[in-house]
Simulated assay, not measured.
Amino acid sequence: MSQDWPMGQEPHAAVLVAQGLIEHPENLDHVLLDDEEGWFVSDGSEFGDDPELDGEQFATVCLHDVVELLPQLRALAKLPAGMGANWDADSASWVLISPLVPSDDEEARAYREARDAAWPHAGSPMDEVNLSLGLMEIATAADAPARSVRYVSREEDGTWMFVGFEVPDPDEQTEVEVDTLELGHVAELYPDVVELLDAEPGEVFFREAPDAEWLQVIDDGE
């Protein structure tokens, strides 16, 4: 692939795109990247039970052409497989999501079991964890600040919290707005937290800068 090509998939990879976006790309609503790294790009339309209707609503287009039509996809070049993102036109940013995999689907169950078996840490990669909102958003502006985790805690009940540098003082009982993703997706998005994923319940870590070493908070926060 060309060094100028930003995506992790081949330029001619097939992408399923809502037909309405071809004429009205401003109606972009969300994208999904399945576990085999196949893109689905939608204006809000979803698959139903009628193959004929689905065929009318969606088209197969090469990824290169989709990126030309929707250049904001470039910001998702490193999106982990199995994730998705909602497009927020007002802020020109993507809001990350971990799509729900149906529990009654045999193939989905096998996929989950394989993920669990490959997960080397405590718990499951599908555990729901909390992230500050800045870690949930991928801005498309060229001058957007890099996203990085500043603070990691594992509560006594085993629940995880990840806070980014957009929060001034997460270690001083600051109220933090959060949303949720799967733990395995967080590990792929922010690989520098992986070394902390075997922390015991009650342990807390922080760092002064994105490239600084992690420090453990002991009792009074020092």
Rank of each mutant, 00 (worst) to 15 (best):
D43H: 11
L181C: 04
E106N: 13
E203T: 13
V193N: 01
D157R: 08
Q57K: 13
V178C: 12
F165Y: 15
A81T: 04
D157S: 12
A108V: 04
G221P: 03
L69N: 00
R154N: 08
P80A: 02
D157P: 06
L76Q: 03
L131G: 02
A114T: 15
E128N: 13
A110N: 13
D50C: 05
P191D: 01
I218Q: 08
H64F: 11
A108W: 00
A85M: 06
L32V: 11
A89M: 00
P102N: 00
Q173P: 07
S98H: 01
Q216D: 02
L196W: 07
G44I: 06
V178D: 13
I22K: 10
G48R: 05
L33P: 02
V31L: 04
G48H: 05
E46W: 04
V149C: 06
L135F: 05
L28K: 04
W119K: 07
L33A: 03
E26R: 09
Q72D: 05
E182N: 13
S148L: 10
D171G: 15
E36Y: 05
V17F: 09
E203K: 11
D171T: 12
A110S: 13
L28T: 01
G202S: 05
E222H: 15
S132K: 12
D192N: 15
R154V: 08
E222Y: 11
S153N: 09
L183R: 03
V31S: 02
T140Q: 03
I138Y: 04
G20C: 15
A146E: 14
A110W: 09
V193W: 07
L133I: 09
E46G: 09
A209I: 08
I218V: 15
P25D: 03
E107L: 07
S93F: 07
D49R: 06
A85P: 03
N86I: 06
L63K: 04
H64V: 08
A89C: 04
L70P: 00
A199G: 06
D198G: 07
S103L: 12
V204Y: 11
G221Y: 02
E155C: 06
D43Q: 08
R147A: 13
E208T: 15
A212V: 08
P170M: 10
G134H: 05
S124I: 11
T180S: 08
S98A: 09
W214T: 06
D105N: 11
G48A: 08
D90G: 12
V17G: 10
E188I: 00
H12A: 13
A92C: 12
V163G: 00
T180V: 07
S42H: 14
G158A: 02
T180E: 05
D171R: 13
A114F: 15
Q57G: 11
V204M: 14
G164Y: 02
A139V: 01
V17N: 11
M136I: 14
T60W: 08
H24G: 11
G8L: 14
M7S: 02
A118D: 14
P201D: 01
P168S: 15
E175S: 14
G48K: 10
L76W: 03
A144I: 07
H185A: 07
K78T: 12
